[in-house]
Amino acid sequence: MTFLTHIREGAIVVLTMDQPQTRNALTGNTAVDEFVQACDAIRADASVKAVILTGAGRVFSSGGNVKDMQRFFDDALTPDRIREEYRQGIQRIPRALYHLDVPVICAINGPAIGAGLDLACMCDIRIASETATFAESFVRVGIVPGDGGAWLLPRAVGMAKAAEMAFTGDPIDAREALACGLVSRVVAPEALLDTARALAQRIAANPGAVMRMTKRLLREGQQASLESLLEMSAGYQAIAHKTADHREAVMAFVEKRAARFG
């Protein structure tokens, strides 16, 4: 059964997690492979300028399938094998999605729990429905964030709030998520996708190649030194100045007309 549905809307790709019967769980199915394949295809298609990620049904994603975790009780499944399973399994999603060089808007339609919350944190911009809730709930089931959540969540909400969420496992509602910076806006459920689309269209109106380089600089800026980022920025700028889109933007400004990007 397919986990991700793809809809192409001009320069925008809408990805929908479409297994509401499992609350869009990310394990025990083909979710990992499908996320990696989708990211690879988007990265290779220069005409894609923005991505929207959302979930079908009332839940964004419940994260790991707790029922599926019973198999870890098997003595034959050693800690070494489990570690490798995480490396070759769910950890491939943050490597693919977080490093995707196309801007990704997460439209959070309902609860984002455990790995579901971490999935949202892999995206660049998060918009929440008023019905959304968020929980870094791994501790509640006796495990740690195995998908990079301990790296992702503090970058979204700060260390103190991330520690509070991770140590208690307590959920927060959309209003609190907005207050702590986890999401950039909260909208009525019926307005969620239209809001995400409108934002994606504003992003897609800009030059695609420069957008991808801008995202890469923002990502690198979270961990690189200023000197390293300045050097990288100089190299990217040299490339940008030679693009047809830059020439078009400058000429449109000089000629007092709207730019027409490829």
Rank of each mutant, 00 (worst) to 15 (best):
F3R: 06
I7V: 12
G10D: 08
A11H: 13
V13G: 02
V14L: 15
L15Y: 04
L15M: 12
Q19L: 15
L26F: 04
T30F: 01
A31E: 07
E34F: 09
V36T: 14
A41Y: 03
A46H: 09
A50D: 10
S61A: 08
G63Y: 11
R71E: 05
R71Q: 14
L77H: 13
T78G: 07
R81M: 12
R83H: 11
R83A: 15
G89Y: 05
R92D: 08
I93G: 07
V102M: 11
I105C: 02
I108Q: 09
N109A: 06
N109V: 11
G110T: 06
A112S: 07
A115L: 05
C123T: 12
I127V: 15
S129F: 09
T133N: 01
R140F: 06
G146Q: 14
D147R: 01
R155T: 05
M159L: 10
E164F: 06
M165R: 10
M165A: 10
D170F: 12
P171R: 06
I172M: 09
A177D: 10
L178Q: 12
A179M: 06
A179V: 03
R185N: 12
R185H: 12
V186T: 10
D194R: 04
Q201A: 03
G208Y: 05
V210K: 01
R212V: 02
T214Q: 08
K215H: 01
R219C: 10
E227F: 04
L229Q: 04
L230S: 00
M232K: 14
A238R: 03
I239L: 07
I239D: 02
K242C: 10
T243V: 06
D245L: 03
A252G: 02
E255I: 00
K256R: 07
K256L: 08
R257P: 13
A258D: 14
F261W: 11
